[in-house]
Design a binder for these strands. Structure first.
Lengths: 142, 142
DNA sequence: TTTTTGCGTTTACGGTTGTAAACTACAGTT
DNA sequence: AACTGTAGTTTACAACCGTAAACGCAAAAA
């Protein structure tokens, strides 16, 4: 069977997925109302995005009377992990550390999040290298 | 004076910028060779990308004899920070913590990077909230 | 000087994205 | 039964992207 190809979610589509994930399932009018409020989008725009997400397989449309209910077909956390992983893949590996520092600085994290991060870091510290090599240009360090 | 509009760097363009940042300044043939090797791109593709980056103002082309030398006009770290910030802005704030944990897990970090992160986290822990609110749907928590 | 080669510029072309209006069809209202 | 919403579908459309080939020109080689 066809292994579901990598689903690419665009910036605008992310916003729609967020509410779908949060609410579990949504109707287009529901999303439209939320998006008008949060993003200033017209109803038509939301319809387009929902349609594209269904076509991509990120959402499933299940008929419910006259309309449809949309259900997320991909999970939130893995989707986020993958998007983030892709972006970081384009960055110089040597700079990832600093980028994370900057990111943490400008992000709001809960006590629990911080504790979890500290735990992973402590674990990682056990056998982390002294230096990470730059891989921007084969055979060069920046 | 025109405040330089936000420069958007696409995925393919990132790869070109990386080598420009690493080498300080580059010629198109240099980039072409590296990209043929690293990405399998044709020379023509690299030329297009260099041209687009110059037009966007991410690179500057300075004539050097028959050819040009391309210099980065934007800094690496701020560019990365901004790209990462934009992506995280599309994610549910409640999930950012876990996403960072997953990211750290799949990333190679140096001892120095880890120490820096631990320092920022320790600082942040001092007045981090117990919980971070979900902001996917106004007035709802997931 | 004629030829070749390397470099920047123009043109190409199908896809994706953001943003939305227009159109169609059915259900609930009058 | 006619009318009016509402929901989904089609069409639009310019900008951006990935990926290049084609073109024109000047410098280097023959």
């Amino acid at each position: 069977m066809e292994a579901q190809t990598k689903i690419e979610i665009s910036d605008a589509e992310w916003e729609v997925m967020r509410v779908a994930w949060t609410l579990g399932n949504v109707t287009s009018s529901q999303v439209a109302e939320i998006m008008a409020d949060k993003m200033g989008w017209k109803t038509a725009t939301v319809k387009t995005l929902l349609g594209r997400l269904v076509k991509k397989g990120a959402l499933r449309a299940e008929k419910n009377g006259r309309a449809f209910n949309y259900y997320p077909m991909v999970e939130e956390q893995p989707s986020m992990d993958e998007a983030v992983g892709t972006l970081f893949g384009h960055l110089c590996q040597m700079r990832v550390g600093q980028t994370l520092v900057d990111l943490v600085n400008q992000t709001e994290l809960s006590q629990t999040d911080i504790a979890a991060l500290q735990a992973v870091l402590a674990e990682k510290a056990k056998d982390a290298p002294e230096m990470v090599e730059c891989d921007c240009v084969p055979g060069t360090r920046c």
